[in-house]
């Protein structure tokens, strides 16, 4: 009797644990950097850990029904789902996760799945304006996905596959083989839509705490909020790793993975610090202009 599957699960959980800690630390560093730009000292680097523990340690919860429970669960399963079908390290036996059984289409689905579950859950909350937040968030996320999907289609035409592992394999052998060099238009479109995906400043009006209807997370508290925070800590670096895999040649070891995903992760951070927020009616046309056109061109010119 073989226990390979058990060992596989163990390694996947280990990878998840590493990614979770990596994400929490990254969010601490982000807040530190934005504080330094505002001439502040900023939070401790491990502040996200404390917030997470505190939110898990609330003694009372208020629920508004079954969907209210399931909202954060869907969100978290969306984040974990993206992680599960993503090869962390190319060629590694242990950290390829389940990428052999899932492809880009599945990952695109999981990216949207969390948002939908969140919308259903928040709709059951008591906040009368959560519908505004949901509709704004979903409509913005749809336009964010559009250039990214076009870039993915362009990649599929280029490499004749939807499998991430195969796409990474085709990029091996030096920087000139990266999609960045071979298909710069698709890279540009995807990186612009990545700005929106990460939920940093120019496009974070749907989750901005200063907004009166701050949208779906308003009613979520204590453990629900902690689950959402966990998801954010997983989904952030996983999306960065997805970008690394698709456009920057993937990674063959942990060091190159961390360096590359760190740099990709901080591209939206620096953009977000420099630029103020767009309103939703400004950000949606923005995504439908330059990134959309770049995505279309990437398909035609490949």
């Amino acid at each position: 009797m073989s226990f390979d599957w058990l060992i596989k699960i163990g390694y996947v959980l280990l990878g998840l644990f590493i990614v979770l800690n990596y994400g929490l630390l990254q969010y601490g560093v982000i807040r530190r950097i934005s504080a330094r730009i505002g001439k502040r000292i900023g939070v401790k680097v491990y502040q996200p850990y404390i917030d997470l523990i505190k939110n898990y340690s609330f003694r009372s919860q208020i629920t508004h029904g079954v969907m209210f429970y399931l909202g954060p669960v869907f969100r978290l399963s969306g984040g974990v789902g993206v992680f599960l079908f993503m090869p962390l390290i190319f060629g590694s036996e242990h950290f390829s996760n389940y990428s052999f059984s899932g492809d880009l289409i599945l990952i695109l689905y999981f990216l949207f799945f969390g948002m939908l579950g969140m919308a259903l859950g928040a709709g059951e909350g008591g906040h009368p304006y959560s519908f505004i937040g949901i509709s704004r968030g979903l409509s913005q996320f749809t336009t964010i996905e559009l250039p990214f999907t076009l870039a993915v289609i362009s990649l599929a035409i280029q490499y004749h596959t939807f499998s991430i592992t195969d796409i990474v394999a085709a990029q091996q052998g030096g920087i000139m083989h990266w999609t960045l060099m071979t298909n710069p238009l698709a890279t540009a479109a995807a990186m612009l839509s990545f700005l929106g995906m990460m939920g940093n400043s120019p496009f974070n009006v749907v989750i901005a705490p200063q907004e009166n209807p701050i949208g779906p997370p308003t009613e979520y508290h204590s453990t629900f909020l902690a689950v959402l925070q966990t998801n954010r800590a997983i989904l952030g670096p996983v999306e960065a790793i997805l970008m690394v895999n698709l456009f920057f040649g993937g990674a063959t070891n942990w060091v190159s993975l961390i360096i590359k995903s760190f740099l990709v992760f901080f591209w939206p951070v620096f953009v977000g610090i420099v630029f103020p927020r767009f309103r939703v009616d400004q950000s949606i046309p923005w995504f439908l202009k330059l990134p959309f056109v770049l995505g279309i061109l990437a398909i035609f010119l490949i």
Binding site: P209, Q210, I214
Partner: peptide
Amino acid sequence: FDAYRFGVQMRPTPRQ
């Protein structure tokens, strides 16, 4: 004054 470094943050909703 930068109260963030002491772990003090503002939240917009009483739930959180």
